[in-house]
């Protein structure tokens, strides 16, 4: 036997009745047409349903060709970043009741990356930027036979930026990235931060040099879109500021 909150069972958080909701989805299928179009779908939803549940209902009951990525369905794998009512969010972390289901909810692919089909974009340029900042621990000398020591205080300095799930919600919310695809973008800088501020790492100056490039951190205009977009609550703009400061204060 299994506990479920479906059907008429009230949720433990208090009773939220079922309701109908309309999703206005940006459709694009190059096998059919070069033009993207909007299409409305109306589905029945329940209290704890998320955007992803509504997308699944459409795909599974109405139109199997609706295409999107998803995997874990609880906000840790980073597959389903999309633009929901004009804001970048994870579909599996956005409850329908929290985005005003009284009006049609718009769902579009994230911006700044080539659209492949419907809500799926080509993630390769995003991962290419990530790879460029050398996202791995760089050390010299012999490996220690036991673990490297690190104080809890030093560990705390980069805790926030270890949370990144590479969903691209931040990078694809950045107006600089929209106009200039060459810009590294917030996610790559966040992942550089994760190593620059790791006391065990010796590659900081190389990374700072890479990010000092004309397409690097100095392109950031501090609009805070990225911080707002991050589904993991990372203070992305702050991390970028810390990298900028390190560039000024650290000699490399």
């Amino acid at each position: 036997m299994t506990a479920t909150l479906e059907a008429a069972a009230p949720s433990p958080a208090g009773e939220i009745p079922s309701f109908t909701v309309t999703l206005r989805i940006r459709r694009f299928n190059p096998e059919v047409s070069e033009e993207a179009t909007w299409e409305d779908f109306t589905v029945e939803a329940h209290g704890t349903d998320r955007i992803l549940d509504a997308l699944h209902k459409i795909k599974w009951d109405e139109d199997g060709s609706l295409t999107f990525r998803r995997s874990c369905a609880h906000g840790v794998c980073g597959s389903d970043a999309m633009r929901i009512n004009g804001r970048n969010r994870l579909a599996c972390k956005t409850l329908l009741k929290d985005v005003n289901p009284d009006k049609p909810i718009t769902v579009e692919p994230i911006k700044g990356l080539p659209v492949v089909k419907d809500l799926v974009v080509d993630m390769e340029p995003f991962f290419a930027s990530y790879r460029e900042i050398m996202p791995f621990l760089i050390t010299s000398g012999n490996e220690p036979s036991k673990e490297r020591y690190q104080s809890p205080e030093d560990r705390a300095k980069f805790d926030d930026t270890t949370k990144c799930i590479l969903c691209a919600a931040c990078t694809s919310s950045c107006p600089v990235f929209w106009t200039d695809g060459q810009y590294f973008g917030p996610a790559a800088i966040v992942n550089a931060h994760r190593f620059i501020f790791d006391s065990r790492d010796e590659g900081g100056s190389q990374r700072l040099e890479i990010l000092n490039d004309k397409e690097g951190v100095w392109r950031c205009r501090t609009t805070f879109n990225c911080t707002e977009a991050c589904p993991r609550g990372i203070e992305v703009t702050k991390a970028i500021q810390e990298v900028k400061r390190a560039m000024i204060t650290r000699a490399f």
Binding site: F136, L137, E143, P144, E147, R148, Y149, Q150, S151, P152, R155, F158, D159, T162, F195, D198, R200, D201
Partner: peptide, 15 residues
């Protein structure tokens, strides 16, 4: 750990 995994640490800095 040597690959870079950021484990939580004891007050002495061990895993």
């Amino acid at each position: 750990e040597r690959m870079g995994l950021p484990f939580n640490r004891t007050p002495e800095g061990k895993i």
